Every structure is written in structure tokens, then in C-alpha cells.
Amino acid sequence: MLEKDIERKLVKETKACQGMCLKFISPSLTGIPDRIILLPEGKIGFVEVKGPGKRPRPIQIKRIKELRELGFKVFVLDNKSDIKKILDEIGGDAQ
């Protein structure tokens, strides 16, 4: 299983929750999570997608910490089986 397979599944499952899974590329800041999840009722979360068993780089860990300190939900996803749990935590089950 590749990182892109996990990412495709995340996009599909987010759409099934009536949400959007936006690819995020920051031109001025490195290490920002790959995806922004937008769900009904203003729910938002960030997801860094990794291949199975892969860990975030130090700059990614720093950005994840900064986002969490601002009060955002931020996840590292390296397994398709964790997608539902992540979406539920962001608020995908509150429909």
C-alpha cells in the first residue's frame, strides 16, 4: 500500500461524509499537513498522510504542534483503517 492509496481513500471517505478534503500546499511555510478536512457544521482538521509505518519529518512535527497549540485537530495517517476514526474525531459522525 502506498501513501497515494491512503490519500485517495481519505478523499473518498471525506466526500462520503459530505465534506471536502483539500490538498494544501503552502508557498511560504514548509511542513504544513497535506490535507485540510472540511466537514459540515464548520468542522475542520488537518491530516498529514504518510506511507505505512512512516513518521513525520522534524519540521512536520513542529507544524503539527503549532496547529494543535492553536486548537486545531491534527492527525498523522499511515493506515487506511484509521480514516473513519479520524473523520469521527473531526466531526464527521455529527450529521
Score class of each variant (00 low, 15 high):
residue 75 F to I: 11
residue 68 R to I: 03
residue 32 I to A: 08
residue 74 V to E: 05
residue 29 L to F: 09
residue 23 K to C: 03
residue 81 S to N: 11
residue 76 V to E: 03
residue 71 G to H: 04
residue 27 P to H: 11
residue 87 L to M: 05
residue 56 P to D: 15
residue 86 I to G: 00
residue 25 I to L: 15
residue 28 S to M: 08
residue 39 L to M: 02
residue 48 E to N: 15
residue 37 I to M: 01
residue 22 L to K: 04
residue 52 P to R: 13
residue 88 D to H: 15
residue 26 S to R: 07
residue 74 V to I: 03
residue 49 V to I: 06
residue 41 E to T: 13
residue 42 G to K: 00
residue 55 R to Y: 10
residue 59 I to Q: 14
residue 29 L to C: 12
residue 44 I to Y: 13
residue 32 I to E: 09
residue 39 L to T: 03
residue 31 G to A: 11
residue 42 G to M: 02
residue 77 L to E: 03
residue 74 V to K: 05
residue 9 K to C: 02
residue 29 L to I: 12
residue 2 L to K: 14
residue 40 P to Q: 08
residue 3 E to A: 00
residue 45 G to S: 03
residue 79 N to D: 07
residue 7 E to T: 12
residue 14 T to N: 07
residue 86 I to R: 02
residue 46 F to A: 09
residue 63 R to D: 04
residue 54 K to W: 14
residue 29 L to H: 14
residue 47 V to W: 01
residue 69 E to H: 01
residue 93 D to E: 15
residue 38 L to H: 08
residue 80 K to P: 11
residue 26 S to I: 07
residue 37 I to L: 07
residue 60 Q to E: 13
residue 8 R to Y: 04
residue 38 L to W: 06
residue 7 E to R: 09
residue 15 K to A: 13
residue 27 P to F: 00
residue 36 I to Y: 08
residue 48 E to P: 12
residue 94 A to M: 15
residue 38 L to T: 08
residue 55 R to C: 13
residue 8 R to I: 07
residue 36 I to A: 05
residue 36 I to Q: 08
residue 40 P to V: 10
residue 13 E to A: 00
residue 41 E to A: 13
residue 41 E to D: 14
residue 54 K to C: 15
residue 92 G to I: 06
residue 27 P to E: 03
residue 55 R to N: 14
residue 30 T to N: 15
residue 73 K to L: 13
residue 15 K to H: 12
residue 51 G to E: 00
residue 85 K to V: 12
residue 37 I to R: 02
residue 28 S to Y: 11
residue 61 I to W: 13
residue 78 D to N: 10
residue 57 R to F: 12
residue 75 F to Y: 03
residue 1 M to P: 08
residue 13 E to Q: 04
residue 7 E to N: 01
residue 60 Q to C: 07
residue 87 L to R: 02
residue 7 E to H: 08
residue 15 K to P: 11
residue 67 L to C: 00
residue 4 K to W: 06
residue 49 V to S: 05
residue 38 L to G: 10
residue 38 L to R: 04
residue 3 E to V: 01
residue 69 E to G: 11
residue 23 K to G: 08
residue 35 R to W: 06
residue 58 P to W: 02
residue 36 I to N: 05
residue 50 K to H: 07
residue 73 K to E: 06
residue 33 P to F: 03
residue 45 G to K: 04
residue 73 K to T: 02
residue 59 I to P: 14
residue 84 K to T: 14
residue 55 R to K: 12
residue 53 G to N: 02
residue 2 L to G: 15
residue 4 K to P: 10
residue 1 M to R: 08
residue 84 K to E: 14
residue 77 L to G: 08
residue 36 I to P: 10
residue 25 I to T: 05
residue 79 N to P: 06
residue 89 E to W: 06
residue 43 K to E: 15
